[in-house]
């Protein structure tokens, strides 16, 4: 438990001291919010910004998670991981520390995106709705950061990792329900979108915004996060280099 906190604290300190990355990670989602959210002429909703904001929040978490996987890649390349693996501290706490840092950082970034959305015209929600939104984003963050960190453990170098993350981020985003509702999608896309874990998170946040408790999406998200986390933890426990 102590190891988890120590690993997480190290990453937060390093992040805090490298301030450029704090801002740069927000440019992309903010650009989507402003240039797509405000500019796209759509007919299925009156306030497209309110529709797309959950998608952008989840997208922020997705890119925070995928870029977070690179942290482990660097720990591995630079020789930190070897030191950590030779410590008596449980090896799974390396993973959990990373998950908590990446998810925590993602939540800070999504907060900024939420504020920007409000400033450019999104509807203000109740505190409970925000709390539930954070909960859903946290679940999704755990899922994506556990997955990304474990993939980084197995890939050889940073080039392969960034190729991997580029390869999956765009298709995942476009095959989700981020940009349009299922009923305006072509049938093939709607099928894909309903299977995409991104959609579970986006739909959940959207239902929260509409005042519905998103039980089905949350159950799906909890289940899939728990399974992935379990697999990743056992991978970390058994790892040799």
């Amino acid at each position: 438990m102590k190891g988890i906190f120590t690993y997480m604290k190290r990453d937060f300190l390093k992040w805090y001291r490298g301030r450029v990355a704090v801002v740069s990670a927000l440019v992309m989602p903010a650009a989507w919010l402003i240039f797509v959210g405000l500019a796209l002429p759509v007919k299925f909703t009156g306030n497209y910004l309110d529709f797309i904001t959950p998608g952008i929040l989840v997208m922020t978490m997705l890119s925070a998670g995928l870029s977070g996987g690179a942290l482990l890649m660097f720990d591995k390349i630079l020789g930190f991981l070897n030191k950590f693996l030779a410590l008596p501290t449980p090896r799974s706490s390396i993973l959990v520390g990373k998950i908590l840092f990446i998810t925590g950082r993602g939540l800070i970034q999504t907060t900024i995106i939420l504020v920007i959305a409000l400033m450019i015209g999104a509807t203000l929600m109740s505190p409970l709705q925000y709390l539930l939104t954070y909960f859903v984003l946290f679940l999704f963050g755990v899922l994506i950061s556990a997955f990304a960190t474990t993939i980084a453990l197995y890939l050889d170098d940073h080039d392969s990792y960034s190729a991997f993350s580029t390869m999956i981020s765009m298709p995942l985003f476009f095959t989700s329900s981020a940009l349009m509702p299922y009923d305006v999608m072509p049938a093939w896309l709607a099928t894909l979108a309903r299977l995409n874990p991104l959609s579970f998170a986006i739909d959940a946040v959207r239902e929260i915004g509409a005042g519905i408790i998103p039980s089905l999406s949350v159950i799906l998200l909890v289940t899939i996060s728990a399974v992935i986390l379990g697999i990743c933890m056992s991978v970390f426990r058994r790892v040799t280099i």
């Binding site: 001291r17 020789g79 030779a86």
Partner: peptide, 20 residues
């Protein structure tokens, strides 16, 4: 785990956090 708690290992890469 017992092995790890009685040893220390310094790899050749010189891995210390430069921002700390």
């Amino acid at each position: 785990e017992e092995v790890r708690s009685c040893i220390s290992y310094v790899p050749q890469d010189m891995a210390v956090d430069i921002k700390l």
